[in-house]
Structures are given as structure tokens and as C-alpha cells.
């Protein structure tokens, strides 16, 4: 691990642990991450017994060299974007730990688990009410969005 920046060292540790001991329904594409530690693709399965059971999703993580002080940019990518009140059809996710409530003690694994849990607690599959407008007007980077978080349990 010599010669690595602090962010690379941490990402390397996270990658090793995610490869070795992935949480249920989550797996990292090790090939892509090893090519460029700042860009990961995570495969995610909808949890059994939820509205997303049997579905497969892909999450993209982009890290800056200020990680973990700076939050990763996390979006759904690929052919299947989950239909969920907090997930826009362009893959952007409205989840406060990805911006305002980010903490350097969080990790790729804990972000994935939060997203699994967010999907699992969904009662009705639907897009956010402002989806059409948001997708047309938003910045490509969801971290540039000034999200307005509120406490609902969906």
C-alpha cells in the first residue's frame, strides 16, 4: 500500500473488505474498481420480500481525492433504475447521507446498506412527483443539487 494517497489507501481497504465479505445482495465489480480506485460499480439485488425482489440494479460510485472527507457521488446507472419516490429516472438519489449528512465514518458498504434499506421500506413504486422537471433541469452531478430533505419514512 506504499505510495498511495490517504483516499486511495482507504478505498483499497474498503474494496478488499467488500470483496471478501460483501453484505447480502451487494457485490462490487472488482475489475472496474481495481482499474481506477476512484470509480466503482456496485451490483445490487432487490431484497427478498420487498417490492424490488428479483430486480437487479447497478450503482455507480465516484470518489474525489478528498474522500472520505468529501462524500462520494452515487447514482443508479444501467438499464434498470428502481422506481422509487426518492430515485429520479436519471439515477439520481435523494438521500441525505450522500450530501448534508455525509460523515467520513460512513463507507461504500454503509451507503449501499442505506440504499437497500431505502428501497426495502418502499410501500408503492412511483417516481418522485417532480421527476420530469428535475431530470430536465438538474446538474449531471447529483451533489450539485440542493436537496430538500424531510423526514418521511418511505
Amino acid at each position: 500500500m506504499a505510495g498511495m494517497s490517504p483516499s486511495e489507501r482507504r478505498l483499497q481497504k474498503e474494496l478488499m473488505s467488500l470483496i471478501k465479505d460483501p453484505p447480502p445482495g451487494v457485490s462490487v465489480d472488482a475489475g472496474i474498481a481495481e482499474q481506477n480506485l476512484l470509480h466503482w460499480i456496485i451490483n445490487m439485488e432487490g431484497a427478498a420480500g420487498t417490492l424490488y425482489e428479483g430486480e437487479r440494479f447497478q450503482l455507480q460510485f465516484k470518489f474525489s481525492n478528498k474522500y472520505p472527507f468529501d462524500s462520494p457521488e452515487v447514482t443508479f446507472v444501467g438499464p434498470n433504475i428502481p422506481t422509487h419516490p426518492h430515485v429520479y429516472s436519471n439515477g439520481h438519489i435523494c438521500l441525505s447521507i450522500l450530501t448534508d449528512d455525509w460523515s467520513p465514518a460512513l463507507s461504500v458498504q454503509s451507503v449501499c446498506l442505506s440504499i437497500v434499506s431505502m428501497l426495502s421500506s418502499c410501500k408503492e413504486k412511483q417516481r418522485p412527483p417532480d421527476n420530469a422537471f428535475y431530470v430536465k433541469t438538474c446538474n449531471k452531478n447529483p451533489k450539485k443539487t440542493k436537496w430538500w430533505y424531510h423526514d418521511d419514512s418511505v
Binding site: 419516490p85 426518492h86 435523494c94 438521500l95 441525505s96 447521507i97 448534508d100 449528512d101 460512513l106 454503509s110 446498506l113 442505506s114 440504499i115 434499506s117 431505502m118 421500506s121 418522485p128 412527483p129 417532480d130 428535475y134 443539487t145 436537496w147 430538500w148 430533505y149 424531510h150 423526514d151 418521511d152 419514512s153 418511505v154
Partner: peptide
């Protein structure tokens, strides 16, 4: 904007 609060989902 619709959103998800952190605390309950944070692991």
C-alpha cells in the same frame, strides 16, 4: 423534493 432522511437508513 422528495427525499429520505439519513438517520433511519444509516448503517
Amino acid at each position: 423534493m422528495a427525499s429520505s432522511s439519513s438517520t433511519e437508513h444509516t448503517v
